[in-house]
């Protein structure tokens, strides 16, 4: 594994500089039953294909970002800071 992730702050950097934060998933509401929270904590889609993921640029700007990655080819199609996307 040595693919590059385009960091919105730092540019193309090696995946080794990042911490993987898992799939982007909306958490259940606070009123949701415990079972939903258990699923949220332990179940993963684990897509063979394109998925949105959290990444933290540990050895760079030290910010969280989201990246859209093809898990088969490790091609990162897009990356952005969540704040930028909402605007």
């Amino acid at each position: 594994m040595s693919f590059l992730i385009p960091c919105p702050n730092c540019g193309n950097r090696s995946v080794y500089e990042f911490r993987f934060g898992g799939e982007v998933q909306a958490p259940p509401t606070s009123a949701a039953p415990p079972g939903d929270w258990q699923k949220h904590r332990f179940n993963r889609v684990n897509a063979a294909g394109v998925q949105a993921e959290w990444w933290f640029h540990r050895s760079g700007c030290r910010q969280w970002m989201q990246a859209v990655r093809n898990t088969v080819s490790n091609e990162v199609l897009e990356s952005f800071l969540p704040g930028d996307k909402q605007e």
Binding site: R19, W54, F56, R58, R62, W64, P82, G83, Q86
Partner: peptide, 16 residues
């Protein structure tokens, strides 16, 4: 420390 800081930053990032 690193873990906690990242945990807090993550919440800030997700909530704005």
């Amino acid at each position: 420390l690193d873990f906690v800081q990242q945990w807090l930053e993550w919440q800030i990032c997700a909530t704005g």
